[in-house]
């Protein structure tokens, strides 16, 4: 039994502790905003926050949690879509297909929490999510806009 504190709610998880957090979130908790893209922590579509840090949930076993961690998914980034990153993304029409964007926004919001004045080189280093539609130009603009919101 593992206690999961997700988006401010605590639930008890009694399944396989080897199961990556991604699948506990998607299938056991029903929060499907966090996506499966590669399963090997390469693409970043499954990025969530654990205690505010960006983590790729597809390779993070549930059993590695001790129950004290605060987990945030895209559904919990804000109550109503008004996190500065979400507002900037809306303002600039960042998403194309949008599939990678929950992970992208979670990675970006973790970066901005750590570095509210993130520079282009901070962005280049920290944001390694893949987007096949190719939204990077607007993602970069969106990060700089979000800093001001």
């Amino acid at each position: 039994m593992v206690k999961l504190n997700v988006n401010g709610k605590t639930v008890e998880y009694s399944g396989d502790e080897d199961k990556p957090l991604l699948w506990a979130i998607r299938e056991d908790l029903g929060l499907t905003g966090t996506k499966y893209g590669c399963g090997i922590a390469q693409c970043g579509a499954c990025t969530i926050h654990i205690d505010g840090n960006a983590v790729r949930a597809c390779t993070y076993p549930v059993g590695a949690l001790d129950g004290s961690e605060k987990i945030t998914t895209i559904e919990g980034l804000s109550e109503d879509g008004t996190h500065p990153v979400q507002k900037a993304w809306a303002e600039l029409d960042v998403p194309q297909c949008g599939f990678c964007q929950p992970g992208m926004m979670m990675a970006v919001s973790a970066l901005l929490k750590e570095k509210p004045n993130a520079t282009d080189s901070d962005i280049d280093e920290a944001i390694t999510n893949i987007c096949r539609c190719g939204t990077f130009a607007r993602v970069r603009k969106g990060i700089h806009l979000a800093k001001k919101l």
Partner: peptide
């Protein structure tokens, strides 16, 4: 079609 792409609802 952007709004639901920003909240994980889509």
């Amino acid at each position: 079609d952007t709004a639901n792409k920003l909240t994980g609802k889509l």
